[in-house]
Design a protein around this nucleic acid. Structure first.
Length: 775
DNA sequence: AAGGCCACACTTTTT
DNA sequence: GTGTGGCCTT
C-alpha cells in the first residue's frame, strides 16, 4: 500500500491505520518509534484519507520535535508531490495559539501588536504590583522568593483555566485573598502593557474557542505528541479544536508515555491520558489504545535497569516490559567518587578511553544532569582534559544584557503600545530620565486610556519631545527626542525600497549605532570583566544573523477568514501595520524568540560532547550516556527528599524524580555510566556531605561497579591546563573558571583561556542555543 | 538622577 | 563566588 506503512511493526501499524473517526491513544515507551508513528499517521491521514494539510493540527512539545517531524514528513511524502506538508498547522501549543491569537485575538480583547511577556517581564510586573500593594498598607513582602511564589500561583491558576474571577473561593481565605489580589492586579498590568504571558497564550485561545468555536471550525484532525506533558488547558484545547467540525468531530490522535512525565512542576497532568479515554468513551467515540513495547534503542541491560527503577514507583503503574531489539553485552557501569571534582575528572578520563578514531565520536556522548548548575564542575574538568563540549541550555544567550536591550528596541520599532519594552529603552538610553520620570510617563498613558484612547506610547513620546511635559527635564526631553528619532528612522527603513533582508539588517545596524548599547554595556562590565567589547559585538552579530535569516511563516495557514473577523478591533498604530512584510517578519521573530522557540543556528561541524539537563534530553538518544551526581538531595532533588509532612506529596515528588531518572537512563543506546560523590567541593548547595542516591540501590548484577582509581591519578594535567596556569597571571585569582562555567556564559572565559583552546570567536561551550547534532 | 556600597540569593526542571 | 537589587549619598 504505502511503503512507510509497510515499514512499521504490527502495533505501530495498528495505530497509524486506525480509523480517523476515533480517538487513538498510543502509549509509547522510550525508543519504540513514537515519532515514526505520529509522522506516519499524519502522512496516512493526508494521503489515504485525503485530509487537507491546513486542516490538520499537530501539537508538539518543543520546536525541535516539530522541526524533526516536518523533516521526516518531507521524506515520507516525497513520492507524493501533490501533498504540501508545509501547510500543516504544526508547532508547540504555545506557538500555535499565538498564531491563532494574531488573527482572532481581537475577539478576546487583545490589541493588535500585542507582545509576549517572558518570565523576567512577568516577575517585574508582579513586583510592581506588590510594591503598590505594600504602599497602600498591605502586608506583603517584595522578596524574590515571594515574587516567585506568586508567579507560580498565578501560573497554576491559569493552567487550570482559572482567571481571577473563576478561582474557587478556598477555605484558607486570608492567604488566598492576597494571592488573588496580586493575580488580579497582575492581569491589569499585563493588559496595560499590551502583553500576554506564556500561560495566557493558551488560556486566551481556550476562551476564544469557548465563545467562538467556529474560528477553528475547519480542523479535521488533532494530533498531540508528548501527551503526558499536557496541562488541563491543553487537554481542553484538544477537545475544543477537534470538537466543532461535525464531519470530523473528536478525531484525535495522542501519543505519549506516562512514565516519561517530568513536567508536573509545570502543572502537566499525566492522568490526562486516562481522562481523555473516559471523556471520549462517555461521548460514545470509539477509543483505540495501542501500546508500543518493542524498543529499538537500548541494550537489554539498560532496559532491565530502567524497568527495575520504575517498579519502585509509589503510584500505581501499568507494567510495560519493553523488549530489547538489541543484543546486550556492555554492562551498565557505576562509579563512586570522593568529591564532585573527582567525579568530573573520572568522566573526562572515561570519555578519553571510550572515544576512538574510527569508532565512538565526541558527539556520540552526552552528560545528563538533574539541574543546570551542576555543569560547572564538569565543564572545568572537561576543559582541563582538553575535551570539546557544548552545553545545550537554551536561554542563556537571550538573557544577556545586550541581547535583551536590543530586543526591547526591536519591540519598540514593531509596536506603539508596548510600554514594557519602551520603558526599558528609555531607562537605558535617556540620561536624566529615571524611575520618577518613567512613573510620570506611565501616569500620562493611563490618563490617555481613561479618555478611551489606546495609550500610544510612541505618539506620546513624540509630543513630549516636541512640546515638553511638566516634570520632565530639558535634558530628558532632548533624550526622548533622540530616542523617538531613532525609532522613527528605523520605521522609515521598514518602508524603504530594499529587500526584506536588507531592511532588517539596516534597522538593526541603525539601532546598534545610535543606541550606544555596545559602549554602555561594555562599560557596565568593564570594572570586573575587562575587555569584552568584541564579545558584545559578536553576540549582537549573532542576533542580527538570526533576525535576517528568520523564515516567515506562511500565514495562509489560518486563512479562511472567519466571518466575525470584522469585529477585530485593531488599535491604532502610528504607522501602517500592513505596509511591510519586514514588519510582519519582525513581529514573528519576536514572537518566536519569546516563545523559547529554537532558532536556526549554523550547524557546527566539530564533534563535541553534549552536556544538558535531563529535561533537555527528552526525545533524544546517544550511544554513550553519563548520568552523574546521583546523590540524595541532587538526584532525587532536595525538593523531593525534604519531608513536607505530607506523605502523598512526598511520594508524588519522588515518583517524578524517578521518572526523570528513567528518562535519563533510557536515552542511552549502548553504554551507560552512573556515578555519585560523597563530598561537594567549593561553595555549595546544602550539606557538602552527600549520600548515594536511592536510585542507585540496584540489585547485584544490574551494574558493574567500576574502578575509580583513575580519578585520583593526577594525570589529567594537559598542556592545555598548563597553558591556562601560565596565562592566569593577569586574572583575579579564582575568578576565571568559576565565572567561565556559570550557566550565564562560558563565553565570559578570561581571554587567556579562550585563546588557547580555540580561536577567540569560536568560544567554548554555550552562550548560544545550539542545535543537537543529528545522530 | 546617578553612582557606590552592602546584603543576599543562587540550587529543579522550561513552554 | 558572583550577580542583582535596594538603599544610601552626592
Amino acid at each position: 500500500m504505502y511503503k512507510f506503512v509497510d515499514d512499521l511493526n504490527e502495533h505501530q501499524r495498528a495505530a497509524v491505520t486506525a480509523s480517523p473517526h476515533s480517538a487513538v491513544l498510543v502509549l509509547a515507551g522510550p525508543g519504540t518509534g513514537k515519532t515514526k508513528v505520529i509522522t506516519a499517521r499524519v502522512a496516512y491521514l493526508l494521503l489515504h484519507h485525503k485530509l487537507p494539510p491546513q486542516d490538520v493540527v499537530v501539537a508538539t512539545f518543543t520546536k525541535k520535535a516539530a522541526n524533526e517531524m516536518v523533516e521526516r514528513l518531507a521524506v515520507l511524502l516525497q513520492p507524493y508531490p501533490q501533498i504540501d506538508a508545509k501547510k500543516l498547522l504544526i508547532g508547540t501549543f504555545h506557538s500555535i495559539c499565538v498564531r491563532i491569537l494574531r488573527k482572532y485575538g481581537g475577539l478576546v480583547g487583545l490589541n493588535a501588536g500585542f507582545k509576549i511577556a517572558d518570565e523576567t517581564d512577568a516577575k517585574q510586573l508582579i513586583k510592581k504590583v506588590l510594591r503598590v500593594m505594600a504602599e497602600s498598607g498591605l502586608d506583603v513582602s517584595l522578596k524574590d522568593s515571594d515574587v516567585k511564589k506568586y508567579r507560580a500561583y498565578i501560573s497554576a491558576c491559569k493552567n487550570k483555566a482559572q482567571l481571577p474571577d473563576q478561582v474557587p473561593v478556598s477555605k484558607k481565605a486570608g492567604d488566598t485573598s492576597i494571592k488573588l489580589e496580586v493575580y488580579t492586579l497582575y492581569q491589569e498590568e499585563l493588559a496595560r502593557n499590551n502583553v500576554i504571558d506564556f500561560d495566557d497564550c493558551l488560556l486566551l485561545v481556550h476562551r476564544l474557542l469557548a465563545h467562538h468555536p467556529s474560528c477553528m471550525g475547519r480542523v479535521k484532525h488533532v494530533l498531540v505528541d508528548e501527551f503526558q506533558d499536557t496541562n488541563k488547558v491543553q487537554l481542553e484545547l484538544v477537545y475544543q479544536l477537534s470538537g466543532f467540525n461535525e464531519n470530523y468531530k473528536h478525531n484525535v490522535t495522542a501519543v505519549g508515555d506516562p512514565d516519561q512525565s517530568i513536567y508536573a512542576f509545570r502543572n502537566a497532568e499525566a492522568e490526562n491520558f486516562y481522562r481523555m479515554e473516559d471523556y471520549y468513551r462517555q461521548k460514545g467515540v470509539p477509543v483505540l489504545k495501542v501500546a508500543l513495547t518493542q524498543n529499538y534503542r537500548s541494550t537489554s541491560n539498560i532496559l532491565t535497569l530502567a524497568e527495575h527503577l520504575m517498579n519502585q514507583q509509589f503510584a500505581r503503574r501499568e507494567q510495560k516490559y519493553l523488549r530489547a531489539h538489541k543484543k546486550d553485552d556492555i554492562p551498565v557501569q557505576m562509579f563512586a567518587c570522593a568529591t564532585n571534582k573527582a567525579e568530573a575528572s573520572t568522566i573526562a578520563a572515561t570519555i578519553k578511553q571510550v572515544v576512538k578514531p574510527n569508532g565512538t565520536q565526541y558527539s556520540d556522548i552526552a552528560i545528563l544532569l538533574r539541574s543546570g548548575f551542576l555543569s560547572r564542575v564538569i565543564e572545568q574538568e572537561l576543559i582541563h582534559a582538553n575535551l570539546p563540549y557544548q552545553v545545550v541550555h537554551g536561554r542563556s544567550f537571550w538573557e544577556r544584557r545586550e541581547i535583551r536591550l536590543l530586543m526591547d528596541y526591536l519591540r519598540a520599532v514593531a509596536s506603539d503600545m508596548d510600554w514594557l519594552g519602551y520603558s526599558r529603552c528609555l531607562d537605558f538610553q535617556v540620561s536624566g530620565l529615571g524611575a520618577k520620570s518613567l512613573l510620570l510617563l506611565e501616569e500620562q498613558l493611563s490618563a490617555q486610556r481613561a479618555r478611551n484612547q489606546p495609550g500610544n506610547v510612541y505618539v506620546m513620546l513624540e509630543s513630549i519631545a516636541r512640546d515638553g511635559m511638566k516634570g520632565i527635564t530639558a535634558k530628558a526631553r532632548a533624550g526622548i527626542g533622540e530616542f523617538v528619532a531613532l525609532i522613527k528612522k528605523a520605521r522609515e527603513l521598514l518602508l524603504s525600497d530594499a529587500t526584506e533582508q536588507q531592511q532588517l539588517e539596516k534597522i538593526f545596524d541603525h539601532i546598534v549605532q545610535h543606541s550606544r548599547v555596545v559602549s554602555v554595556v561594555n562599560e557596565e562590565r568593564m570594572d570586573r570583566k575587562g575587555d569584552s567589547q568584541e564579545e558584545i559585538e559578536a553576540n549582537l552579530n549573532e542576533l542580527k544573523n538570526q533576525l535576517i535569516s528568520f523564515n516567515l511563516q506562511e500565514e495562509d495557514l489560518l486563512q479562511d477568514a472567519y466571518a466575525e473577523e470584522d469585529e477585530l478591533e485593531v488599535a491604532e498604530q502610528s504607522f501602517d501595520l500592513t505596509a511591510s512584510t519586514s514588519l510582519e517578519k519582525l513581529t514573528q521573530f519576536l514572537d518566536s524568540v519569546y516563545l523559547y522557540e529554537e532558532t536556526k543556528i549554523a550547524e557546527k561541524t566539530v564533534s563535541k560532547v553534549t552536556i544538558t539537563t535531563v529535561h533537555g534530553s527528552k526525545g533524544l538518544e546517544w550511544p554513550v550516556v553519563f548520568v552523574p551526581s546521583l546523590c540524595e538531595g541532587i538526584f532525587p532533588s532536595q525538593h523531593a527528599t525534604n519531608d513536607v509532612g505530607d506523605t502523598t506529596k512526598n511520594e508524588a515528588a519522588l515518583d517524578e524524580e524517578r521518572r526523570c531518572m528513567y528518562v535519563a537512563v533510557t536515552r542511552a543506546k549502548e553504554r551507560l555510566y552512573l556515578s555519585y560523590f560523597r563530598e561537594t567541593l567549593g561553595f555549595g548547595f546544602g550539606d557538602p556531605v552527600k549520600r548515594k542516591s536511592r536510585f542507585l540501590n540496584l540489585p547485584k548484577g544490574l551494574v558493574k561497579v567500576a574502578d575509580t582509581s583513575v580519578a585520583s591519578t593526577p594525570n589529567l594535567l594537559s598542556s592545555f591546563q598548563r597553558n591556562i596556569k601560565l596565562n592566569t597571571g593577569s586574572l583575579a585569582l579564582g575568578s576565571g573558571f568559576q565565572t567561565a562555567s556559570r550557566l550565564t556564559g562560558v563565553s565570559r572565559l578570561p581571554d587567556g583561556a579562550v585563546k588557547i583552546s580555540k580561536p577567540r570567536k569560536k568560544r567554548l561551550g554555550m552562550g548560544r542555543p545550539l542545535r543537537f547534532t543529528k545522530k
